Computed example of a mutant assay.
Amino acid sequence: MGFLKSISEKLFKTKRGFTEKIHEESKKDEPITDEYLDFIEELLIEADFGVKTTMKVMEAIEEGIDKGDIKTRRDVELKIREVILDILKQVEKPLEIRKSKFVVMVVGINGSGKTTTIGKLANFQTDRGKKVLLVAADTFRAAAIDQLEVWAKRVSADIVKQQEGADPAAVAFDGVTSGVAKNYDVIFVDTAGRLHTQKNLMNEVIKIKKAITKAYSEAPHEVLLVLDATIGQNAINQAREFNRALGITGIVLTKMDGTAKGGIIVAISEEFKIPIRYIGIGEGMDDLKAFNARDFVESVFVP
């Protein structure tokens, strides 16, 4: 229960902005009216569940009412939890690194927490005795290279880097080639924080992916998209564009502790069915958690 409690405390904004309002209504010994159902629907939309997921939840509630399974407002809350859990269980697939020379390409826009996520994932691996290499293929900003180097030192990983302005695809190729030749267990390739709406920049990450495959035909084994949960529905657009360009195999949702609209994780899960590998719930090294659907739902709905 300590683990659940720690997540629950980190997700208090989501609870306050969404589930506590449902709790308050559940306590009322009042009938299920059209006005109440409208309230639930608006609450789901406001919490960034998106139209598609909201409609799925509302249809499940209405079907339960018609069948006589839902008689009270408490029953409505339990049905919401059930539908959310069913959606999230489909994407509960933590990243498994089962072989050596495992290449993870990490993408996402600036400010999403991408480089910090790489650092924390690298720490998971070095803590397990793995030999880890970080490849600084975000060459557009000197600060990005410096930040990755700081993380490399912090978590006892090695780094391949070049100067600012170097060709990102060439850096990725050299880094992966070196990492494979030197038998690194895990190779994380950082990429520039592309705005998904900038076609030329999206083309650049496509080029980086091709360079990784050229360096090692099996790679990348994982294309990991880091999304900022606080940007709400725009995260859906980012996921769509990156997935279209690269074929995303996993998602990390960061800053879940900073949003009252935690429904975005459900919306993304329902829309794309892409595995949610991790969620970020704070700045600490231990605040990147392997995603567990039941733990997440229970922590958010804890009274």
Rank of each mutant, 00 (worst) to 15 (best):
E41H: 08
S269L: 08
K71C: 05
T14G: 15
E218R: 13
A181L: 14
E25S: 10
R98N: 10
D190C: 03
G165K: 09
G119P: 02
A136N: 10
L195D: 09
I7C: 10
M105Y: 14
I109Q: 05
T177L: 04
V300A: 00
G262W: 07
A215K: 08
G50A: 11
V51T: 11
A136M: 04
D146S: 07
T72K: 11
G280K: 02
L37V: 09
D287H: 13
K71V: 15
K28H: 10
R277A: 08
I70M: 06
G113M: 03
I70C: 08
V300I: 14
D38H: 14
E20A: 11
I264V: 12
E77A: 07
D138N: 09
K99H: 13
K153Y: 03
T191E: 02
G282M: 07
I264T: 05
N292M: 06
L134G: 14
A157Q: 09
T115P: 01
K52E: 12
D174N: 15
I80Y: 10
N237E: 07
D75G: 11
S8E: 06
K79Y: 07
V189A: 11
G263V: 08
T249E: 04
T19G: 05
F39K: 15
Y36S: 04
R73G: 03
I279S: 10
E96K: 15
G129F: 06
P168S: 00
A60K: 12
T115W: 12
K21M: 02
K153C: 00
I264A: 05
E204W: 11
D228Y: 14
A181P: 00
L78G: 01
A245V: 11
N110A: 03
Q147V: 14
K15G: 07
K67V: 07
Q162Y: 08
S217T: 12
D127G: 15
K5A: 12
G165S: 09
D228L: 07
V223N: 11
K131G: 00
K89S: 14
F140H: 10
Q238P: 06
E62W: 15
Q147D: 02
G263T: 13
P303V: 01
D34M: 01
I109R: 02
F301T: 08
E96R: 15
K273T: 07
N292C: 04
D38R: 15
N234H: 12
R240G: 00
G165C: 04
T126K: 11
Q163A: 09
T33P: 07
Q90W: 03
L134K: 09
K207F: 13
F296W: 02
S217R: 12
K261A: 03
K71G: 01
E46N: 08
K207T: 03
K79I: 11
L253V: 09
K207A: 02
D287V: 08
G247N: 04
V76M: 13
G2S: 15
A260W: 05
I97P: 00
I212G: 15
G250Y: 00
A60L: 03
I32F: 14
E77M: 15
T191D: 01
